[in-house]
Each structure stands twice: as structure tokens, then as C-alpha cells.
Design a binder for these strands. Structure first.
Lengths: 122, 122
DNA sequence: CAGGATCCCATCAGATACTG
DNA sequence: CAGTATCTGATGGGATCCTG
């Protein structure tokens, strides 16, 4: 499921949405995209800025983002190696709707927390 | 991680965002919310409309959405039992930013697919 | 009808160690 | 520096059976 078999619904359609949602649900993709928003950065720079991501996950995440056309990867043939990442236009445009969502989260987080408290109390 | 320990970043802040993102990353929450958008529905009605969700996951998802204040659950004391679900105002308002994201997904899905093809070909 | 309980597997993600 | 490889543990989620 989820791969190619998920002929599902997602609001009535065949489902381009899941493809996108998987990229924000996976804990790191969004964070990486946000980190890259200001401009070009190298691997370890991203790693440091995020702080608690493992090399492995950063690597995986970057590769998937690259394959999906959100991120551009540029390898410089030097020693020591230097690899730079930047957002593609697609990557940038994706952050627009995401910002709206993040704003909503900020504004309504209190309500969610309150609801949880109530649920816990009741 | 993810529970309470994730002091992380998510765009620079402490992180109310993860709470929200977890609800769209989990495969079913969004689908259930979307199904409930038109109005009140009962358990098996949602089940049928989504089609490929198990009772268990539907139950879990609904309970979490209820606890988070997205969904209202109403039990009618009848035999056989009737339980109805509806979106709260919070639930409805959440769908606004989500619609923007879904629109983006629709518009850009082709680009993503194309990028994958290219990545696969290269 | 609307679930809860249990079993089981696939995937996610961290930790550690190794390499060009 | 920028990764890859391997092992491991935590979830997510499906299937099946049981109940008020």
C-alpha cells in the first residue's frame, strides 16, 4: 500500500496528494526544505543547523527531495569534497502553501493543546 | 522523540508544527477530515466512503482527531448503537490551509512525476 | 452497529562504524 | 567532507476474531 497500489481516494481523486503528503509527514523533508529556503548550503551545514538529524536521514531525505525535483544537488570535484544543495523553483513554490499551514499550526496550537487537556481530564 | 523530547526546530521555533504535521502524515487523518467536511456522518458511513481503511485505524484516527479537537463524537443511546461524527470549527478551519496544499499538489504532481522519471532514467 | 483485543509485518529512524 | 552499510528498536497499519 502507499506505493503504487493505493488507488485510494484522498478527497475523491486518484491521489497525487499522497505523494506530496508523504514528503511532509516524514519528519525531516519539510525541515530540510525550510533550512534550504534562504539559499545554497552544504551537507554538514544543513546537518548542523537542524541539529538532531542523523547523517543517514539527512542523506536519504536529500536524495528523495532531489529525485522529486524539490532540491538541486551540486557536487564539486575537489578534495575534500564539497556538495551543495539548493531549492529548485518547485521546492520554493512548495513552501508557499506550507507557510499557510505552518501559520495555522502556530495560531491554533493552543486550541489543540487545550482540547487534549480536556480530553485527558474528562 | 516526537513526543515531548523533540525540542527541535521546525523553522526555528520550539515546534507546535509537528503536532499538526503528524496528523496529516499519518495516512488517514486527513482523509477522514475530508470525508467529514460535507457534514455529519456515522462510523460505517465513513468506513464505506474511504473504502480501504480498517475499522481499527478508523477508530484510532477518529479518537485522536476527537482528542485534538478536530472532530466531535456523538453517541446516541439506541439499539443498535448509532455514533455520529462531525467536524468542529477547528477541524473546518484546518481544512483551509490544507486545501491550498492540496491544490498545489494537484498542480505540481506532474512536475514531481517528471522529476522522478528523469532521476530514474539518469 | 461500532468498536476493542491480539498478532504480525513493513517501514521509519537512531546509533555506530566504515569509505572515497 | 560527504556520505554508505548494518543493526536495532519504535511505530504504523493490516487481518482476524470477539463484544456491548
Amino acid at each position: 500500500m502507499l506505493d503504487g497500489k493505493k488507488r485510494a481516494v484522498t478527497l475523491g481523486h486518484p491521489c497525487p496528494i499522497r505523494d506530496v503528503l508523504d514528503r511532509i509527514g516524514d519528519q525531516w523533508s519539510l525541515l530540510v526544505l525550510a533550512t534550504l529556503e534562504p539559499g545554497v548550503k552544504r551537507f554538514s551545514q544543513i546537518e548542523r543547523e537542524i541539529g538532531d538529524i542523523s547523517k543517514q536521514m539527512l542523506s536519504k531525505t536529500l536524495r528523495r527531495l532531489e529525485q522529486d525535483g524539490f532540491v538541486l544537488r551540486e557536487v564539486h570535484a575537489e578534495v575534500p569534497p564539497r556538495v551543495e544543495y539548493r531549492l529548485t523553483p518547485l521546492g520554493h513554490s512548495f513552501l508557499d502553501p506550507m507557510r499557510a499551514l505552518i501559520r495555522w499550526a502556530d495560531e491554533n496550537h493552543a486550541a489543540i493543546t487545550a482540547a487534549r487537556q480536556e480530553a485527558g481530564a474528562a
